[in-house]
């Protein structure tokens, strides 16, 4: 808790104040009054929620279909939170066309520099950024080799599971390993609107021996569904769920190329497992839970009838028990 350190500082400050101003002459009454004021200040400090946590809590409560708009609103209230919020709040992804390859890629905070985005296909920022910034932000060597190979794999995976849509993967180096993000976006066509955005953020810590690595995955799926018909004027089911998982996985082979391939396989499998799990969860929440809550609010069967049925059922059970 950040407030704890504040509280400790305040206690220290007040003690110094007591010693400095009152010296040895402070009577008990003055000391008590000052201590009382101090306690009030402490209570106030403790009840003040951390603004960043409050921003996240607010975004978890307000309609998920307006997350982007609410995020902009919160930032206008608290510009100091902008960087932290942009890197921790997932919003629906946007796609851009790569001018070099002619292929679409996805944009997020991880391939962004100012208003420029890096294409995973060309490895270049569009619009171009300063060469000294590019030297720092454009991955090279093994990280870029793994990124290319992960993009190729994710592309195949996307075609098999999404049968369309856009995918992109971005990697960057860390001191003891690397980090990355795998993105998918699919928009439904035809009757009813629908959109799926998945955002998988990974952190990979490699063992010194490079025989295994620790993978940490945080995944968010943003699922937006809607229907409008003559029988239901409109039904909106929109939202996002986030889940985390960690795993120690082995890396086969001694050659660098085998280690790199091992990472791509491990990441691919983890993302596939997570998406399959989350798809089931989304199905349960969107179509099971929402329907159950409506049923809890209102019963189609008259409640007196339901009560009679229950009583009759209880009687049958008790007769059978005799």
């Amino acid at each position: 808790m950040p407030t704890t350190s504040n509280s400790t500082e305040l206690v220290g400050f007040a003690l110094l104040y007591l010693i400095y101003f009152c010296g040895g002459d402070a009577d008990l009454w003055t000391t008590l009054i000052i201590l009382d004021d101090l306690l009030e200040i402490l209570e106030e400090v403790d009840s003040m929620a951390d603004p960043f946590d409050a921003a996240l809590d607010l975004l978890r409560r307000l309609p998920p279909s307006s997350t982007q708009q609410n995020l902009t609103g919160i930032i206008s209230l608290r510009p100091d939170l902008e960087e932290d919020l942009l890197s921790s709040v997932d919003v629906a992804l946007t796609a851009r066309r790569c001018p070099t390859s002619g292929r679409d890629y996805l944009c997020c905070d991880y391939n962004r520099d100012g208003n420029s985005y890096r294409s995973p296909w060309s490895n270049a920022f569009e619009p171009p950024i300063e060469p000294e910034d590019a030297a720092e932000l454009v991955p090279g060597g093994r990280v870029r080799r793994m990124e290319e190979s992960l993009n190729a794999g994710v592309d195949v995976y996307r075609e098999l599971y999404y049968e369309g849509g856009v995918s992109s993967a971005y990697l960057w180096a860390l001191d003891e390993g690397f980090a990355g993000v795998v993105l998918f976006k699919k928009t439904a066509s035809g009757a009813g609107k629908g959109g799926w955005d998945s955002i998988h953020v990974l952190e990979v810590n490699e063992a010194a021996t490079k025989r295994s690595a620790h993978y940490k995955l945080t995944s968010t799926v943003i699922l937006d569904l809607g229907l409008s018909s003559s029988s239901i004027d409109n039904l909106d089911l929109a939202g996002n769920l986030t889940r985390q998982t960690q795993s120690d996985l082995s890396l086969g082979g001694f050659r660098e190329a085998e280690v790199e391939q091992g990472h791509v396989v491990n990441i691919g499998r983890m993302v596939e497992d997570m998406e399959t799990r989350m798809r089931n969860l989304l199905q349960e929440v969107y179509f099971g839970k929402a329907k159950d809550v409506v049923g809890d609010l209102r019963s189609i069967q008259p409640l007196s009838e339901a009560e009679r049925d229950k009583a009759a059922h209880r009687e049958v059970i008790s007769k059978m028990g005799r």
Binding site: S149, A152, G153, V156, Y157, L160, Y161, Y162, E163, F184, K186, A188, S189, G190, A191, G192, K193, G194, G195, W196, L223, L225, L227, S229, S231, I232, L235, L237, Q261, V264, V265, G268, R269, E272, E275, T276, R279, L282, Q283, Y286, F287, A290, K291
Partner: peptide
């Protein structure tokens, strides 16, 4: 309507399994 969305738009976004009914063979994908 819940059923329509589950069977329609939702299914059309991401399959539960590929058409082949097999998970992806990541070793062979590279």
């Amino acid at each position: 309507a819940f059923t329509t969305l589950a069977e329609g738009s939702f299914k059309g976004l991401r399959r539960q399994l590929p058409v082949t009914r097999q998970r992806v063979e990541w070793e062979k994908i590279g």
